[in-house]
Design a protein around this nucleic acid. Structure first.
Length: 353
DNA sequence: TATCCACCGGAATTTATGGAAG
DNA sequence: CTTCCATAAATTCCGGTGGATA
């Protein structure tokens, strides 16, 4: 059934972007100066997660690279400091700065590296725009950026005036796809990644409808439907396979989110999974009880309460933990109880005290 | 209803880590 | 080798807030 799993990877680049022609030409217009050896215009791409903001940026950059002598870099800005962002850009451009290089030196090195038009994608610049980092990048001749965020208005409200004016006229807003549009996008994926006639058009539309036009979710759901059909020995995808696809796809997404987090987060997660829904105070109490046992023999040592709140916030961000209520009365629970930490923190029986 | 207490989350401060300079 | 320095992560500090208790 599944002939090429790579087609369903987040990093897979489709040959052409369907239903995004206005956005593509907007980016092409912004990048035009780079084809003449000049600095390209800055761009702001906004929209909900999973609708192809990063894919759009990569696709447009790929086209630009094919016809102009430019450099590109892509940086994940989430939780990165100014120095961290500048360092990531340098690394993408082939430099290897030492861990303790001062910010000033990093900026100098960046100026040296950028000897031709260079476009930096600032991905996941979601909530907090790094204004300082933007200013530093703006100081470099020939360097321009494409910032990706959720809410354009929120983002713009926080940046400096000159940044504001620099993206004027180059703001691209992406929305969720319509049912038919997303089905159009899923069709070539099915053609390239699945056996012929494995799925019908109407099933693709059902998937698109279920995920409310979020492309990333739709693509994962299509893969999940194919996998479920295989398990059930169906020759092609059946409607009941489609019905069960989105829960499995969402499970995958959350699983990989949890896997990507460090040990402290996993401990907190397991705690909530085993004992939740629970209050903040109960969570702290349980942590204090079991932390000695769980951390014994490990590099890391238990963390304080304030740091635990930060881990908790991260887990919420990653759609792993749900918070019901606010402040003092908030109750925490895991979103999907069948997802366990790969670190197997749960090996320590939490209730045995 | 008034008071208390523990949590929340922003900001300042400290600690841990590791590369570079002397 | 020692000292210095920069970052990242964690702690300390603290004002705001909403349940709990009398």
């Amino acid at each position: 059934m599944i002939t090429n799993r790579g087609v369903f990877d987040d990093s897979y680049a489709p040959r052409n972007l369907l239903h995004r022609s206005a956005a593509v030409s907007e980016l092409t217009r912004a990048f035009a100066p780079a084809t003449r050896g000049e600095r390209a215009d800055n761009v702001l791409i906004s929209g909900p997660s999973g609708v192809g903001k990063t894919t759009l940026a990569r696709h447009s950059l790929g086209r630009l690279e094919a016809r102009a002598d430019v450099q590109t870099a892509t940086v994940r800005c989430l939780d990165q400091s100014t120095a961290g962002i500048v360092r990531s850009v340098l690394e993408d451009l082939g430099a290897d700065p030492a861990l303790n290089t001062p910010l000033e030196d990093l900026c100098l090195a960046l100026r040296e590296r950028v000897d031709r038009p260079t476009v930096v994608v600032l991905d996941e610049a979601a909530e907090l725009p790094e204004t300082e980092a933007l200013a530093r990048l703006g100081d470099v001749d020939l360097l321009s950026w494409v910032a990706i965020c959720h809410e354009a208005a929120d983002w713009l409200a926080r940046v400096d005036e000159d940044v504001h004016t620099s993206v004027m006229g180059h703001e691209v807003e992406l929305d969720r796809y319509g049912v038919a549009e997303l089905a159009d996008i899923l069709e070539p994926r099915a053609r390239e990644g699945l056996r012929a006639t494995a799925v019908t058009r109407s099933q693709l539309e059902t998937i698109s409808d279920t995920v409310a036009g979020v492309a990333r979710a739709g693509i994962q759901s299509l893969l999940a439907a194919a996998e479920i059909a295989t398990e059930r020995d169906h020759r092609t995808i059946q409607d009941d396979d489609v019905d069960d696809a989105w829960p499995r796809a969402r499970h995958w997404i959350r699983e990989s989110n949890l896997e990507s987090l460090p040990y402290h987060h996993q401990v907190i997660y397991e705690l909530v999974r085993c004992d939740g829904p629970m209050s903040g105070s109960a969570l702290h109490e349980r942590y204090d009880e079991m932390s000695d046992a769980v951390y014994r023999g490990r590099q890391r040592t238990p963390i304080g309460r304030r740091a635990r709140r930060d881990k908790l916030a991260k887990l919420r961000e990653y759609d792993l933990i749900d918070v019901d209520g606010e402040g003092r009365g908030a109750r925490y629970s895991v979103c999907d109880g069948s997802i366990r930490s790969p670190y197997d923190v749960g090996a320590v029986p939490l209730r045995e005290y």
